[in-house]
Design a protein around this nucleic acid. Structure first.
Lengths: 235, 235
DNA sequence: CATCACTGTCATTATTCTGTAATAATCCAC
DNA sequence: GTGGATTATTACAGAATAATGACAGTGATG
């Protein structure tokens, strides 16, 4: 596996140094930022695999950055670990609610930090997102976040895209609505099961244009959920 | 899917009632305990699928029970949702550290409660049979939930699928209708014995297409029930 | 501020599945 | 062969499940 990069966001150089040292010992690359603006630039630019985000920052609280990241489709899956002082425990609650993936209270043991970073990075498969997936004339390009059918670009919403991407990277397998919620929406998201149906319908609609109908690739598995399959589907 | 059971641990009857009502509306079974000792008994006895655990309890704080559960291999995977008052946010931290899976601060909206309970339960669904079973040209694939005969996909209802799946994983053995009801329909389901006949009939019909007839694999054992067998069956 | 795209939820409709009962067919012991 | 018991088949109503259309809330955008 290729080397992973961690972005450290903290305004105290001493803390940053400490973190960098701990992380580099176990072979993570590090980026550093001491404010929100710089952090955002590095996220876009340096494509880190994980962010360590201090709570108390000049020029915008950490929660602001967190919210911004979770709102944007490109950065939603980027794991964020909050760094908090012992006294700011109510922030932890807010942070977790906004979508932080984990938190560590200062002062923390490097061992513990590493363990949590590892655990989170293990969870994010990462690789498949960039893949180019193709079935017949249907192409999903993870990099450009684009779908095309017979050369023509299809437009679809972000959720539809992620759903299609997931399906195409796990074809020929039936998924329950709950499994899809976990995989496509994320594990700490609370939405109704039936919402999946609606997005399936929207995706199916998107997979049709005047000439082609690829909506049959997404099959209903009664009593279970849905399945992406090109077996025996005339296109 | 079979009904799920939630254990409510709270010393205030009013809260318990409220929780029970909210949960029962959406078809969860409920157990109740107003102290740690009783809660533990019910966990061992009633095998709930999830625990709602109030923090402030007479006779031992909730964290004690939580710690105990997370230490024991048998109960470690039992999801626990903490119920906390607004003012005890530092407890949330400790709770999450000890291993609570989620928390809700009182007062909470029933909707939110249900959403979180659902989200946790949807992850803990038991492992399903996903193996691939094959007899001659008949293939049952648990993963894709699909049956194919000589390469062509067969369509059948969910019950037929489960019935066939059961038969193929327990071949060469006669089962009574009641045994089949227990194994395929589930133990606490009451349906007429004769209903099995009808489903056998439907399954047999599904196992035929224009060219093949695999319906003979399902044999009637007069006076007993049915058997799946490929011995001496010309296909 | 107005508008637009997106999302989640609900109400309604459409479709499929299931259990049951009624009837026909088959089997087996005598 | 006959009769009683067992199984097969069919039809049907109601239950369960999925598809669809509409709507409101939320941000994003200009």
């Amino acid at each position: 596996m290729t080397e992973r990069t961690v972005l450290i966001v903290d305004d105290e150089p001493a803390i940053r140094d400490m973190l960098r040292m701990a992380l580099e010992i176990v072979d993570y690359q590090c980026l550093e930022a001491d404010n929100i603006r710089e952090a955002y630039r590095l996220i876009v630019d340096g494509r880190p695999d994980l962010v360590l985000l201090d709570w108390m920052l000049p020029g915008g609280s950490g929660i602001e950055l967190l919210r911004r990241l979770k709102r944007n489709d490109n950065t939603r899956d980027l794991p964020v670990v909050m760094l908090t002082a012992k006294t700011t425990e109510d922030n932890v609650i807010r942070g977790l609610d906004v979508g932080a993936d984990d938190y560590i209270t200062k002062p923390f043991k490097p061992r513990e930090l590493i363990a949590r970073v590892r655990a989170l990075l293990r969870r994010s498969t990462g690789v498949e997102a960039e893949e180019r997936l193709q079935v017949a004339e249907l192409v999903v390009d993870g990099e450009s976040k684009r779908v095309s059918l017979a050369g023509a670009v299809l437009t679809m919403s972000p959720t539809e895209f992620r759903l299609l991407q997931f399906f195409m990277s796990h074809p020929e397998r039936a998924y329950t609505r709950n499994q899809l919620l976990d995989q496509v929406w994320g594990v700490n998201v609370y939405v109704e099961e039936r919402t999946v149906d609606v997005h399936i319908r929207r995706l199916r609609k998107s997979l049709q244009d005047g000439m082609h109908d690829y909506s049959k690739l997404i099959q209903t598995v009664r009593g279970t959920g849905y399945r992406f399959s090109s077996r025996g589907v005339p296109l």
